[in-house]
Simulated scan of single mutants.
Amino acid sequence: MPEIPLTPYARSLGIFVHGEEDGAPVLGFEFSSDVEGRPQHLHGGATSGLLETAGYALLRKELEQLGRAHRLKPINITAQFLSAGKQKTTYAKARIVKLGRRNANISVEAWQDNRERPIATAIMNILMAEPDA
């Protein structure tokens, strides 16, 4: 699996590449005080950061494989929190719903113990601008 570059923000959250499934990177982070919100629970911003990072990681990987160079600009990102994240490792994986010439729609899920019971999801709509735009 090629190395996936992580942003300074992602590294500050402790996000790491756990592996790859179906060609998509699976990212994760360990629970720590850096990602804690209310006592003993994940902060929603940290969870959102993991979801967003997983979405961008997959999109960048796909564009690179297609030989396409674009600047990625978020149109909108909607996170849905389904249950409180606990003091456990959290994982996220994205799926490209539609990849067009100018924009991409991505769905992302985050889970802890059971991937069939996600703790959060996100829908991302990303504008793919020309590199010099």
Rank of each mutant, 00 (worst) to 15 (best):
L6K: 01
N105D: 13
S12R: 05
N105A: 11
I123E: 14
K93P: 00
L13W: 06
F81A: 01
L66N: 11
T7S: 15
R60P: 05
S32R: 04
L127M: 12
G100S: 12
P25T: 00
S48G: 15
R11K: 08
I96D: 00
G28P: 10
S33F: 08
K88I: 05
A84Q: 04
R101N: 15
A54C: 11
Q112R: 08
H70E: 07
L127A: 10
P8G: 11
L59E: 01
R115N: 10
V35W: 08
S33Y: 05
P39C: 10
V35E: 04
I123F: 03
H70V: 08
G85M: 03
L127G: 01
N125E: 13
A122G: 07
A94W: 06
L58H: 12
Y56S: 08
G14W: 00
F31E: 03
D22Y: 12
S83G: 15
S48P: 13
G14E: 00
D22K: 15
I75K: 11
A54P: 07
L66K: 13
I4N: 03
I96W: 13
A94I: 04
G44V: 10
A46H: 09
G85W: 06
A94D: 07
P8K: 01
L27T: 09
G19W: 06
E21T: 14
Q40I: 05
A133D: 14
L50G: 03
P118Y: 05
A110V: 08
G19S: 07
I123A: 10
A46S: 12
T53F: 02
R102M: 11
L72A: 06
F16L: 10
T121Q: 11
V35F: 01
A94S: 13
V17W: 04
G23V: 10
E36A: 03
A120F: 00
N125C: 07
G49L: 01
Y91F: 14
E64H: 12
A122F: 04
N76K: 12
I106T: 08
E116N: 09
I106H: 09
Q40P: 12
R11T: 12
H70D: 11
A46L: 09
E116G: 11
M124K: 02
G85S: 09
V97F: 12
I126G: 02
G28N: 04
G49A: 11
F81E: 10
P5Y: 02
M124P: 02
K86Q: 14
S107P: 02
Q87S: 13
F81R: 05
A10I: 11
F16V: 13
L82K: 05
G45A: 07
S83W: 09
L42D: 05
R102D: 06
L42R: 01
R60D: 01
H18C: 02
S48T: 14
A10H: 02
H43A: 15
S33A: 12
R11E: 08
G100L: 14
E62M: 01
E116S: 11
N103V: 14
E109V: 15
A84E: 01
A94L: 09
L66P: 04
R11N: 04
Y9C: 01
V26N: 10
M124S: 10
A57R: 00
E21Q: 15
L6D: 09
H43T: 13
F31W: 04
H41M: 15
R11Q: 13
F16R: 15
P118R: 01
L13M: 13
T47I: 10
G28K: 06
Q87A: 14
I75P: 02
